[in-house]
Computed example of a mutant assay.
Amino acid sequence: MILALYCPDIAQNAGTCLRTGACLGAEVHIIEPAGFPVGAAGFRRAGMDYIDAIAWQRHASFAAFDAMRRAQGRRLVLFTTTGAVPLTAFRFRPGDALLFGRESAGVPPQVHDAVDARVKIPMRPGLRSLNVAVAAGIALAEALRQTDGFGGA
Rank of each mutant, 00 (worst) to 15 (best):
G126K: 04
I31S: 05
A63Q: 14
L18A: 06
R93E: 14
G39W: 09
A143E: 03
Y6V: 08
D66P: 02
A14V: 02
G35F: 01
R70F: 07
G25W: 00
L127Q: 13
L87A: 01
V132L: 08
G137P: 02
A26T: 05
A60R: 15
A84L: 12
T88Y: 03
R102E: 11
A64W: 12
F65M: 10
F92A: 00
R145T: 07
L127C: 04
A22D: 04
A22V: 05
G126Y: 07
R145K: 14
P109K: 09
P8W: 07
L144P: 04
G73S: 08
T20R: 03
V115I: 13
Y6C: 03
A34H: 05
F79A: 02
R58G: 14
A71T: 12
H29Y: 13
A34S: 12
G35H: 03
F79R: 00
F100V: 11
A26M: 09
G83P: 00
R102M: 05
K120H: 15
A133Y: 06
H112E: 13
T82Y: 09
I31H: 02
G39A: 12
A53M: 08
A60C: 13
S61K: 10
G42I: 06
P33E: 11
A26E: 03
T147P: 03
D9H: 10
H112T: 07
A84K: 11
A141K: 05
C7I: 04
A46P: 05
L3C: 04
P8I: 10
Q57S: 15
P86D: 02
A117L: 05
R93L: 14
G25A: 03
L76C: 15
F65Q: 08
R145F: 09
M123L: 12
A67P: 04
A139M: 07
G106V: 09
H29C: 09
P109V: 10
R74H: 10
F36C: 03
I31C: 02
P109Q: 11
R93Q: 14
R91K: 10
A105L: 05
R44I: 06
A105I: 01
G15M: 04
E27Y: 05
R44Q: 13
D148M: 06
E142T: 10
Y6P: 01
G106C: 09
P108S: 12
A40N: 15
A26P: 00
V119F: 02
R93D: 13
H29V: 01
T82W: 07
Q57Y: 15
R118A: 08
K120C: 09
H29K: 03
A133S: 15
I51M: 14
H29P: 00
E27A: 14
C17E: 04
D113N: 14
C23I: 07
A41G: 11
L5E: 06
H59C: 11
